[in-house]
Write a protein that binds this DNA or RNA. Structure first.
Lengths: 158, 158
DNA sequence: GCCAATTAGTCGCAATTGCAACTATCTTAA
DNA sequence: TTAAGATAGTTGCAATTGCGACTAATTGGC
């Protein structure tokens, strides 16, 4: 008789945990700054990379559908948090970057999110946190999740 | 200058990983058996517990909204995979249990899902898998995720 | 140089799902 | 006993988001 304990089943646990953690974080970027998850992902990507990057790049490396990113960018431009510049070499794509206003919001938001992450992970010891991150990395590798991000990072690609 | 590397940010990584793992599993229960995630959660809960249980119980312990569970139960009853019996003591609630047909499907599905889970986790050593599960448990505990499940298990509650 | 295939981005549509209101039922307290 | 509040389950509505078709632009093979 095959039997499966949902509470010991890793896929279920990951789903439940991710949902819970997302909810915990959304109180920061959603309630406080009116950003939804895709919008936050766009800002996070633009904020970390020095150079401007395209919507397609953001879609690939955050694994978010391009239509979702498109709508997020539209909303962020409407709020003047992000601007886009035409690319003379390829007029299909636009280089995206944060405005001064967007960067200011980003600077206020990041410390809050890092603190939240810290709160969530503080139940683990320093060694455990390191191990946990390493194991996540191994699973990501085996599922090619990192590969996708790194492909997206290659110069000229995407 | 605060800065956040999305690819090292645990909440983002959990989200992305959970989504990817869900996709990997859905090829089993979705494509092969026409079950969506809420339906699968109902069957998983009914299959693991010996006794019948209410929709509310399933909603609480899987952390899924009661309206979502309600729709899943309706669909499963339409396919005669699940049946419900009136509770004489409390006519608001129904005891749910799998039919013979539902149990047969469950028996075919479980080994496939356990194999998928194994494939995903096989990139870790046995020790790592144990540690990973333990750390997940610690994080769940600190977020009261397990608490919620156990509350839901208390006799008479929910 | 030209046509087919590819790619960036947008948008309409549909599926999913959370929220909140609603009904029916039960519980508690005066 | 009765009225107020709580609870199980259903359903309409709206928000989110993935899919796929579409336009515009680019690239590559011939």
């Amino acid at each position: 008789m095959a039997r499966l304990d949902l509470f010991k089943f890793v896929p279920f646990r990951l789903n439940r945990l991710a949902a819970e953690v997302s909810t915990a974080l959304s109180s920061e970027y959603q309630q406080r700054y009116g950003l939804d998850i895709p919008e936050w992902r766009v800002l996070a990507t633009l904020g970390f990379r020095a150079e401007a990057c395209s919507a397609q790049y953001i879609a690939h490396c955050t694994r978010t559908h391009k239509s979702t990113i498109s709508r997020a960018v539209t909303a962020l431009m409407a709020r003047q948090l992000v601007e886009r510049v035409e690319n003379k070499d390829d007029r299909r794509e636009f280089a995206l970057r944060m405005t001064r206003k967007g960067r200011a919001l980003y600077q206020r938001l990041i410390p809050r999110l890092l603190r939240k992450e810290w709160e969530i992970m503080s139940c683990l010891t320093a060694t455990e946190r390191k191990d946990f991150a390493r194991m996540l990395g191994k699973i990501e590798d085996s599922l090619d999740l990192v590969q996708a991000s790194q492909d997206a990072g290659k110069a000229g690609e995407y």
